[in-house]
Design a binder for these strands. Sequence first.
DNA 1: TGTTGAAATGTTATAACATAACACTATACT
DNA 2: AGTATAGTGTTATGTTATAACATTTCAACA
Lengths: 165, 165
Amino acid sequence: MKVKFYVVWLIMKFNLKNTKEVQDSIARVFEICELNNLVFTEIRQKIFEIIIKYKKPIKAYEILDVFTEETEKRAHPPTIYRAIDFLIENGFIHKLNSINSYVGCFHPKVHKECYFLICKICNIYKECCDKNLTENIFKSANKRDFIVSNTTLEIEGHCNDCIQK
Amino acid sequence: MKVKFYVVWLIMKFNLKNTKEVQDSIARVFEICELNNLVFTEIRQKIFEIIIKYKKPIKAYEILDVFTEETEKRAHPPTIYRAIDFLIENGFIHKLNSINSYVGCFHPKVHKECYFLICKICNIYKECCDKNLTENIFKSANKRDFIVSNTTLEIEGHCNDCIQK
DNA sequence: TGTTGAAATGTTATAACATAACACTATACT
DNA sequence: AGTATAGTGTTATGTTATAACATTTCAACA
């Protein structure tokens, strides 16, 4: 049962967790795809699951590793990047440009913009919506005669848990 | 005079401009280095100039091309990246993570945080400070028990000039 | 004035991140 | 069944960035 051991190791290594929150997210994505006639293929599901179960921002080649091991198929980068494109396009995941990593979205299609708190110590991130702040950003840009199409707001620092320690 | 022609072509290609604003920026950086005992070597000067004269976000390997041509020395990536590190560390340039490009800072050391408007059509960027907005970001993060160390706010969209057209 | 130590630079190689291009397959719609 | 489209497999390569170690520069000091 070498394979099973390896999968257990991967789950530990990559800290995959199948919480209620995760299950809900997956269910919600299924629904949204249903409603919008989006094809949520096995590959896309698998990759979404890997991203959402991992509690930290995950890198494309880490996804590739997990995917290859868990499905026992040799996957290549384009497979991962194509799925990532699909997931970003439809708002199911986000890319954190400042660290070349991807994170699952816990409220897809609910919000237009969100921002991210990334802890430099534990690497855990938080996805946040602040309507007020979003409005502020838009106003500030509009004041400068600029029409916003999309924004990236990533905040690095230290989370409460890490400060306590 | 093949070399000269090539330099002219590069200047056109890379849209280098030596405006008063640019000269002032360079002078200011000299001053700041003087005051802070920073070694503003020839390489660092040259690379800062290339970035600041270029009116758009410039990529590391574009800097490398210009540098190699203008100085007629074979430069390698680490030369560029080391200078970039120095310049970012001291607030003379910024990196736009969303497009892997670098931009000169027109008011180094004056501000703590700034944000960027990037036009998707003409690629020109604007560096903006909005004290109110910055405070808002800090407040929003603090409300979530998060201590901010640095922020990235990049706004893509369309600038006024491009909308008019 | 020679020594030495730290910072800067040169050079080679390679790591890390991402996409182009083309062949093949599955599906869904006439 | 035919065919068009979206999705996937595969190879190769493009793009962005850094590791590691050798060499040079230059200021501080004995």
